[in-house]
Simulated assay, not measured.
Amino acid sequence: MPLPLAPLIPLAVRLGLVASTTWAVTRWVRSASHPGRTDQRAEDALDELGEGLSVHKPADRAEDRQTNATARVRRVIRFRGRTWEVDAGLMARLRLRERSE
């Protein structure tokens, strides 16, 4: 007795569409992203940040109206018998300059 395969065709088409869409999106993301790099000077600066939030305007950048901000959170989290250390640091700069065109 032959197996009725016709009811499986819609499922096969849906799975094929999902697989091909996933493959296309993955290729697009890989082609649009770059490998990046790690700058040891930036890593050292992040390691030296103090814990908490800091916002200041450097005196030597007054003409640029530059504002710098730093934030760092260091915590130890225990969950289900495992211990995780969280160390999150952020450095940001906002600079507004007037330009003559």
Results as ranks from 00 to 15, higher is better:
3 L>Q: 10
3 L>S: 08
4 P>N: 15
4 P>E: 13
4 P>D: 15
4 P>R: 14
4 P>K: 15
5 L>S: 04
5 L>N: 05
6 A>C: 02
6 A>G: 04
7 P>E: 01
7 P>C: 00
8 L>K: 00
8 L>H: 05
9 I>L: 07
9 I>T: 07
10 P>W: 01
11 L>V: 09
11 L>N: 06
11 L>S: 10
12 A>I: 02
12 A>K: 00
13 V>K: 03
13 V>Y: 02
13 V>Q: 00
15 L>Y: 01
16 G>T: 00
16 G>V: 02
17 L>K: 03
17 L>W: 06
17 L>F: 06
17 L>D: 06
17 L>R: 04
18 V>E: 02
18 V>S: 03
19 A>C: 02
20 S>T: 12
20 S>Q: 10
21 T>K: 10
21 T>I: 13
21 T>E: 09
21 T>G: 13
22 T>W: 14
23 W>T: 14
24 A>R: 09
24 A>C: 08
24 A>D: 08
25 V>Y: 03
26 T>C: 07
28 W>S: 08
28 W>V: 14
29 V>I: 08
29 V>S: 03
31 S>D: 12
32 A>Y: 03
33 S>F: 06
33 S>Q: 01
34 H>P: 05
35 P>H: 02
35 P>S: 04
35 P>M: 01
36 G>C: 02
37 R>Q: 14
37 R>A: 14
38 T>M: 05
39 D>T: 06
39 D>P: 05
40 Q>Y: 09
40 Q>I: 08
40 Q>G: 05
41 R>K: 12
41 R>P: 04
42 A>L: 14
43 E>W: 08
45 A>D: 04
46 L>Q: 06
46 L>P: 02
48 E>K: 15
48 E>D: 15
50 G>T: 06
50 G>Y: 07
50 G>A: 10
50 G>E: 13
52 G>W: 03
53 L>D: 09
53 L>Q: 09
54 S>E: 12
54 S>I: 05
56 H>P: 05
56 H>R: 10
56 H>Y: 13
58 P>M: 01
58 P>A: 02
58 P>E: 00
61 R>F: 08
61 R>H: 11
62 A>G: 07
63 E>Q: 11
64 D>P: 01
64 D>M: 06
64 D>S: 10
65 R>N: 15
69 A>T: 03
69 A>W: 05
69 A>Y: 07
71 A>L: 01
71 A>M: 03
72 R>M: 01
73 V>S: 00
73 V>R: 00
74 R>Q: 11
74 R>L: 09
74 R>M: 07
74 R>K: 07
76 V>D: 05
76 V>P: 04
77 I>T: 01
77 I>D: 03
79 F>D: 10
81 G>F: 01
81 G>S: 00
81 G>T: 01
81 G>K: 02
84 W>A: 13
85 E>I: 14
85 E>G: 06
85 E>D: 12
86 V>T: 04
88 A>W: 06
90 L>I: 06
91 M>K: 12
91 M>A: 14
91 M>C: 07
91 M>Q: 15
92 A>T: 11
92 A>G: 12
93 R>P: 07
93 R>I: 12
94 L>C: 12
94 L>K: 09
94 L>H: 15
94 L>M: 10
95 R>L: 11
96 L>K: 09
96 L>W: 09
97 R>D: 11
98 E>R: 14
98 E>L: 13
99 R>A: 14
100 S>N: 13
101 E>A: 15
